[in-house]
C-alpha cells in the first residue's frame, strides 16, 4: 500500500468510514499460521463453512457454490474444518511453512495425507 495516508486534520471525525466495504482492501491473510485446504472431490456443497467463516473468506461462484478459500483474508482459524460434515473431511489444515513453494495439487496431497 503506497497511497498517501491522510493527516489528522483531513480525516472524518470519530473514525467514521464513508466507503462501505473498504475492509476488503485490508489483507489479513498474512496473519495465518495454518491454512485450510479444500478438496472439491469430497465436498457436498452444504455451505456450512461459508455460514461459519467469521471473515467471509469462503469463495462462492455465480451459482452459489463453494469455490475455494480467499487466502488474502483467511486468518486460518480452522472453524471451516471444524464444521465440515463429510467423512473424510473436505477441508484440512496445513502449516503455511509446509505449503510454501508447492503447487496446489502438492498442497492438497500434503494436507489430506495426514
Amino acid at each position: 500500500m503506497s497511497e498517501k495516508l491522510l493527516n489528522w486534520d483531513e480525516i472524518l471525525i470519530g473514525g467514521a468510514i464513508k466507503d462501505p466495504g473498504n475492509s476488503k482492501s485490508y489483507e489479513t491473510g498474512s496473519w495465518r499460521v495454518e491454512r485450510p485446504v479444500w478438496n472439491p472431490e469430497s465436498c457436498i456443497q452444504c455451505m456450512f463453512c461459508w455460514v461459519y467463516c467469521p471473515d467471509s473468506s469462503i469463495l462462492v461462484d455465480e451459482n452459489g457454490k463453494m469455490a475455494g478459500i480467499d487466502y488474502d483474508h483467511c486468518k486460518g482459524c480452522g472453524i471451516c474444518v471444524e464444521q465440515c460434515p463429510t467423512k473424510p473431511k473436505s477441508l484440512a489444515m496445513l502449516l503455511e511453512a509446509e505449503a510454501k513453494g508447492k503447487s496446489e495439487e502438492e498442497i492438497r496431497k500434503e494436507a489430506f495425507s495426514k
Binding site: 493527516n7 467514521a16 468510514i17 462501505p20
Partner: peptide, 25 residues
Amino acid sequence: DEPITHGAWAPPNWYFENRMNQLEG
C-alpha cells in the same frame, strides 16, 4: 442512501490521527 461505518478499528497507522482529531473537537 449514504452508508457509513461507525466504530471500525484503527490500526497504529490511523489511531493517533483519530485521537488528535478528537482532541481538536
